[in-house]
Amino acid sequence: MEALLAITIGVLVATSVYLMLARNVLRFIFGLVLISNAANLIIFVSGRLTAGAPPLIPEGADGPVGDVANALPQALVLTAIVIGFGLFAFALVLMFRAYTTLGTLYSDDMRIAEPRTEDTT
């Protein structure tokens, strides 16, 4: 299972790097979504993969009974997903705003904040 997840993470990262190298910023943020999922998977796998019940404490007991899953990475991944979701929503709005105000999605054409200096004229 670890090997499968490792390969999945690798494929996700490779795909996202390919996407992020594109000049089109929309592709870039799709790459960003994939790579953030890869990072979430890394955290998930870091907590070790064990076959266990959900870590819920039954009524009356002081601790979970039997084999339970590691709850910490799940909490971390949940947090990371939420944050990633917020950032993605923001980035998407920003890209749309860029498209309407700058009229382009190509990073090479985005030169308003840093205009090209005239070539030795």
Binding site: L94, A98, L102, M110
Partner: peptide
């Protein structure tokens, strides 16, 4: 316009 332009570069690199 320049804020959006600068913002995109800021956002993307910081997200990475």
């Amino acid at each position: 316009k320049d804020q959006i332009d600068g913002g995109i570069k800021y956002v993307t690199l910081n997200l990475i």
